Every structure is written in C-alpha cells, then in structure tokens.
Simulated assay, not measured.
Amino acid sequence: MQTETFLKVVVILVMLILMLTLSSTAFITFDRAYNQNIMRYHVIAGVLVMTILPVHIYLRREKLKKLLKEFFSIVTTGGAKQPCTNHAHLKTFKQRSLRELCEGLNICIDSAGEFLDRKGIVIYNLEHTLEKIANDNKNDPLKIFALISENQIRIQKDDHV
C-alpha cells in the first residue's frame, strides 16, 4: 500500500514536470524562432508523457471506473446516483462529538475511552468531534470510529458468552 502511494506521487510529479516542459518548450518555439534543440526536448517530453500515461491510468483505475459510472449516470438519468450511502453516514460521524456518538449508538463512553486510551488515542475532551480527536492524535477519524465499533462488538460478544 505504501509503495503504491509512493508510486502515485512520483508519477504525478513526473507528469507535472513533463507538462511544464511541454508548455515551456511550446511557448519558446512560438515566441522565438524555431530551434532544433528545443523541439527535441519537446518531442522527448511528449513521448515520456505518452509512456507514463498508461501507468497513471493503471494506478488510478478505481477512480476512473467510478468517474465513468457517475458520468454515464448523469448522461442517462440526469443525476449521479450514490452507490453506497454508508460512506456518507460515516462522514457525518466525523462531525459529531465523542459523547454524542457514543450516546447515539448506545456505547458506554467510559469503556470506549479506556479502549481508545489503550490503543494510544488520547481524548482531551468528550465534547470534541471525532475529527478533532483524530487530528490531535495524528490519526484518521474513521479508524477511530472503527476502533470504537470493534470494542463495542467485542463487549457484546463477551456478554453473550
């Protein structure tokens, strides 16, 4: 996963550099007289863009599929359909305070706080949003939500045994 992320960043940076090279060599050619060396750089940059483009498309294939599905949905039905509402619900949890989240889901806030503390997540205030708690701990709010849910499931499983 880290390798793929690193590769994505490198590919995007290379593409940006190549696009800058293409645009600057084109500008130089149009602004001044034709120069064979400048055109050579321009052609090399163009070939490199066409070489790295398939790699970029492969790395971004999931986003591209989603984009195409949304595009065809807009064209055929006039609006984009959300394939999954769960992600939208999870996003709303980020904006809720830890107390509000635990009360809404019938989770014992004390056991959730203890569990998060054991996992190295410090909670300064129960009224802070999940997003604020995540930022304070350099973590992802959805990961913290998943940890809280995991703890609740474990507690329920222990109660049934």
Rank of each mutant, 00 (worst) to 15 (best):
T92D: 11
N139A: 15
V122S: 02
S23A: 09
Y124T: 12
M50L: 13
N151S: 13
V49A: 07
Y124L: 13
H89P: 06
D31L: 15
L67V: 00
T51K: 02
Q152T: 14
V47A: 12
L105N: 12
D136E: 05
V9K: 08
N139V: 02
I52F: 03
A33F: 15
L142Y: 09
H160C: 08
Y124F: 12
R154D: 15
A146W: 05
V122M: 14
D117F: 15
N151L: 12
E114D: 13
K94S: 02
Y34M: 15
L130F: 13
F72W: 05
V47I: 12
V43Y: 01
T77A: 13
D110Q: 05
I153H: 10
L16C: 15
P141W: 02
L16K: 11
I52T: 12
S73L: 07
F6C: 12
T129L: 01
K81S: 06
T85K: 08
E103I: 02
L105S: 04
L142D: 12
I133L: 00
T76I: 00
I52Y: 02
L126I: 14
D140E: 10
I121K: 01
F71E: 08
L68C: 00
R154T: 07
H128D: 09
L142P: 00
M1P: 07
A134S: 02
D159R: 15
N125T: 03
H56P: 05
V122E: 00
Q2A: 10
T77Q: 10
M15K: 01
T85I: 08
S149G: 07
R61E: 01
S97P: 05
I107K: 02
F30A: 14
L18H: 00
K157M: 14
H42C: 06
L126M: 13
L48V: 11
T77P: 06
R96T: 08
T76G: 03
G104V: 04
I109D: 08
